[in-house]
Design a protein around this nucleic acid. Structure first.
Length: 295
DNA sequence: CACTTGACCTGTCCGC
DNA sequence: TGCGGACAGGTCAAGT
């Protein structure tokens, strides 16, 4: 679920809530969600102070003064929600507020981090997400981190560089290349569909059939969309919430994602849903003409 | 090697 | 109302 804008929204929220707090205790209700050995957790997590919250691709990094870092991937349904003990009183069970925060922990809570005056809940319905405690210096050397492509929003990453990287996968369909985290980091299904629509490119076009000019348009649209989504607090379809349990509003601005059966905002043609690169894919069949010879 | 498919999980929705 | 199957925003391993 959470893609770059959602993880960035969580990061910003957490940074304002948990920095300088000290970790008092941790409970882990699903081993795979946080598989570190208890010894290491006791030695390097319990008692450590949080010094910073960073993001790389779709990964959150919570730095500790023990020289360790909590590396967290929310995958499809992960949530990282903060609740101060006072909020718990205000929104306790049975309170008319429908706030997620008020109902935590719940049956999807996998890990609870006690921060003394507050708690951080790692909720994850489908259990695909994970967190790991790693020495801070090793973080860039984790296999997953090492292979990641550049951040699309970093200042020194240009549209030419983007085109060049995509073209390393000439035979891939362009949507698969966009979703490939080693080509470019942080793009998932929502922003792949939205940026391809904005650039008027059919998702199953082979990269080799796209001109540099087209690829540059795609990159510029992608950046605009990612920035807009961050401004709107990300996309909430079902599960995603920010650090305070609030939903994101980007999907009200989405042009095609989950809009199948509705008219294209550009030309009025009904938007279709199909499968491309193994993922549900939303397309305006008129604005995004399939390249001849491809299905 | 490059690319595609299935597995990891739970919950929800849709058709019979 | 109940039940089976398809599907869901991500990534890795295994298959072609």
């Amino acid at each position: 679920m959470p893609e770059l804008p959602e993880v960035e929204t969580v990061r910003r929220g957490l940074a304002g809530l948990i920095i300088d707090k000290k970790i008092r205790s941790v409970t882990n209700d699903w081993v795979k969600s946080f598989p570190n050995a208890k010894n290491d957790v006791d030695a390097f997590l319990i008692g450590a102070k949080i010094t910073g919250v960073r993001r790389r691709a779709k990964v959150l990094l919570i730095d500790l003064d023990s020289e360790y870092t909590l590396v967290i991937h929310l995958k499809m349904t992960g949530q990282l929600v903060f609740r101060s003990n006072n909020d718990g009183e205000r929104f306790g069970a049975g309170h008319p507020s429908d706030s997620l925060v008020g109902r935590l922990p719940d049956k999807s809570t996998r890990v609870t981090i006690d921060l003394g005056d507050s708690k951080l809940f790692f909720n994850d319905q489908r259990k695909f997400g994970w967190m790991r405690l790693v020495t801070s210096i090793e973080v860039p050397n984790i296999d997953f981190m090492k292979k990641l492509g550049p951040e699309p929003l970093s200042d020194d990453f240009t549209s030419q560089m983007f085109a060049e990287r995509l073209k390393r996968r000439p035979n891939a369909v362009v949507k698969a290349a966009l979703l490939d985290q080693t080509v470019i980091a942080g793009v998932g299904n929502i922003y792949a569909d939205e940026s391809l629509f904005a650039a008027k490119i059919h998702p199953s076009t082979r990269v080799r059939d796209l001109s540099d000019k087209k690829l540059i348009v795609l990159f510029n649209e992608l950046k605009k969309i990612l920035l807009l989504s961050i401004e709107k607090g990300g996309s909430t379809d079902k599960n995603y919430v920010d650090a305070e349990g609030k939903r994101g509003s980007y999907l009200t601005f989405a042009q095609v994602f989950r809009k199948n059966g509705q008219p294209c905002p550009r030309c009025g043609t009904i938007i279709e849903k199909s499968k491309v690169a193994g993922r549900g894919t939303h397309v305006c069949p008129v604005c995004q003409k399939p390249v001849k010879g491809l299905q």
